[in-house]
Amino acid sequence: MRLTARWPDVLALTAVPSSQAVEAAERDGQRIRLGTPVRFGVSPSADTRALRFLVTAAERYVPVEWRMLGELPWPLHTVVHLPPPTETDGPGTAVAQQWRRQFDLALCTYRFGPGFVLLRDNRPGKERFRAHLGAGWVRPFRELVAGTGEDTRLLGELVSAGLAMRLGGQPPVVLAAHLRRWPVPCFAG
């Protein structure tokens, strides 16, 4: 057998990619390198896109190389479960270093079961959280994740638990990553 083409191991992009680009990188075994730095807190729409991208990359275990400019406009524990920046400028350096030290896969996740959603949050810097959403909440939760629905009661509960954000007039961002497969052996912590 002879290989006729080889995919590069890095997918270099100049803008925050769509979820389809992350899915393609996962399929092709690539890491994503963002050529454009990310500065949080400037634009709600840009922050929403960047957070959705990082959540999708975390869900699909796609390594990301990206540069963060400035500091985070929210506490570190909000995003510590998402891929940390590989580079920063002066003001964000200490936070980025702490982010890299505290980051781990599956710190804040959700998964679907038959007629339920299970949420688990073990992010450092906050109390551990577990929730079991019954059958009546599965569809509204799926819609919130997709950014197509907005059950205000559910969104309010997720925001107060630190599992979702609403930035400006943008659709809400569910920060928990969908646990599609267990990233560590089942006997590990």
Rank of each mutant, 00 (worst) to 15 (best):
E87M: 07
G90H: 04
A57P: 09
H77F: 14
F116T: 00
P85L: 01
L119A: 14
G115S: 07
R52E: 02
L69T: 01
R130L: 12
G92C: 09
G92N: 01
G70D: 14
W99Y: 11
F112M: 02
V138R: 11
F103G: 04
R123D: 06
R101M: 13
R123Q: 05
V62I: 00
T109H: 12
A50P: 04
R67W: 07
C108I: 03
R49L: 12
V79L: 13
V138G: 02
R142F: 08
F53H: 03
A106L: 03
E59F: 09
E127R: 14
L72C: 12
L54N: 05
K126I: 13
P84D: 00
R139T: 15
P75D: 02
E127S: 12
T109D: 03
V62F: 07
R67I: 02
G70T: 09
R52Y: 04
W99L: 03
H81K: 12
V138E: 11
P75Y: 03
F112E: 15
L107H: 04
D89C: 00
T56F: 03
G115H: 06
E127G: 13
R120A: 13
D121E: 11
L119K: 12
F103V: 04
L54H: 07
Q97S: 12
R128L: 12
P124M: 08
L133V: 09
T93M: 03
Q97W: 04
R67D: 10
E87R: 11
D104T: 09
R60H: 04
A50V: 01
D104S: 13
L118S: 06
V64K: 00
